[in-house]
């Protein structure tokens, strides 16, 4: 995909032919290389890490940050930013759980046949996501409010709405049919892991193989040129907000199934993890550059680190420091990649 042109970098040493192709290929996939090295190290040094079940856990637990990262990547590639995704996810989870919960705070919706709760709640959650996306798009595209400020405001407002929704109460007691999404395995692999992979594949296809995807890159890279070429720049930007919010709502729907309910602080901190995954994955915060395959590797890397910390024997007070240090190491390696590219390619 589009890569920053570094031909004017002073002191750059050119590389030609086959060796250049090899180095470019390695650099393009360096996050996967980092992931491989780190997971190998964890397998060697952390007892209990090297087992298939742990690898499935890594993918399964990457579901929510992963889907958020896809939406965030779309917004960033389109030259925007969406800080509201975490709150949208939490509100969608709360709405889903409240709708069908048989607990004290639930509305106990139980259609006949009961499997209808799956499409029913999904439709409600995605509609909520679309509405949030439209509001963000209106604020940014129509009212021309800075995307960072506008989505920060919706982030705060929606998180408040999650807390206010049930007066600070947690909702639990979801029907088994909805829970089945989180507990079912296909071919021995958790359904959530399949869904995560599917989301990445589908949106990778959209970004790289469809005109809409190409427009996202063009608009994010330089909105003036596509505007002059007759591309509806504002509509593309608006769609990027709607897509990121709908994906966040989908993540929320899955999160409700996974945790068998919803709490006001559900998903707290996932926005920052999504940002870390997107940056590690090579998406430029300036817009117009990045690939979802890299983001997927970034998400898996964070999930692998989190799992390693879960298995390490260390005082609980230090786990966040270790997590931060490992994420920083991964990002430094990524920065090294950019440096190598600038100097030698």
């Amino acid at each position: 995909m589009a890569v920053a042109d570094n031909r004017d970098v002073p002191g750059r040493q050119s590389m030609t032919g086959f060796s250049r192709t090899i180095v470019e290929s390695i650099l393009d996939n360096v996050v996967w290389l980092i992931l491989f090295v780190i997971v190998t190290a964890f397998c060697l040094f952390i007892p209990g890490y090297a087992q298939v079940g742990i690898f499935f856990n890594i993918i399964e637990q990457a579901t929510f940050v992963g889907i958020l990262s896809v939406g965030l990547s779309i917004a960033i590639i389109a030259g925007q930013i969406d800080l509201s995704i975490e709150s949208t996810m939490a509100l969608a989870a709360m709405l889903t759980a409240t709708l069908v919960s048989t607990g004290e705070l639930g509305w106990g919706w139980a259609p006949t046949p009961i499997w209808l709760v799956i499409p029913g709640t999904l439709a409600v959650a995605l509609t909520l996501g679309a509405l949030v996306g439209l509001v963000n798009a209106f604020l940014v595209v129509k009212l021309k409010i800075n995307a960072f400020i506008a989505t920060l405001a919706t982030y705060i407002f929606l998180r408040g709405a999650v807390v206010a929704f049930n007066g600070g109460g947690a909702v639990f007691g979801l029907p088994q049919s909805l829970r089945s999404i989180a507990v079912t395995r296909l071919g021995g692999i958790p359904m959530l892991a399949w869904l995560t992979i599917a989301i990445f594949l589908v949106f990778s296809f959209i970004l790289t193989k469809t005109p809409f995807g190409r427009y996202l890159y063009l608009v994010g890279g330089n909105p003036v040129a596509p505007f002059r070429a007759g591309i509806a720049v504002k509509r593309i930007a608006a769609w990027s907000f709607v897509l990121s919010s709908v994906l966040a709502a989908f993540a929320g729907w899955l999160l409700a199934a996974r945790t068998s309910g919803a709490t006001p602080n559900l998903g707290l901190g996932m926005l920052f993890e999504a940002f870390a995954a997107v940056v590690i994955g090579g998406v430029s915060l300036k817009g117009g550059v990045g690939r979802l395959s890299g983001v997927f590797a970034g998400v898996l890397l964070l999930s692998a680190i989190r799992t390693a910390i879960n298995l390490l024997s260390m005082p609980p007070q230090y786990t966040q420091m270790i997590q931060g240090a490992l994420v920083l190491s991964a990002m430094l390696l990524d920065a090294l990649k950019t440096d190598v590219r600038a100097r030698y390619l």
């Binding site: 007892p47 742990i54 945790t259 709490t263 559900l266 998903g267 901190g269 786990t319």
Partner: peptide, 25 residues
Amino acid sequence: VITKPTPQWEPTTAGSTAQDQLLAN
């Protein structure tokens, strides 16, 4: 006793901790 934290009391983290620990232990 194996002790693990749940930063910000976020339930998904607690669920993941249990899931990983059940495999390792």
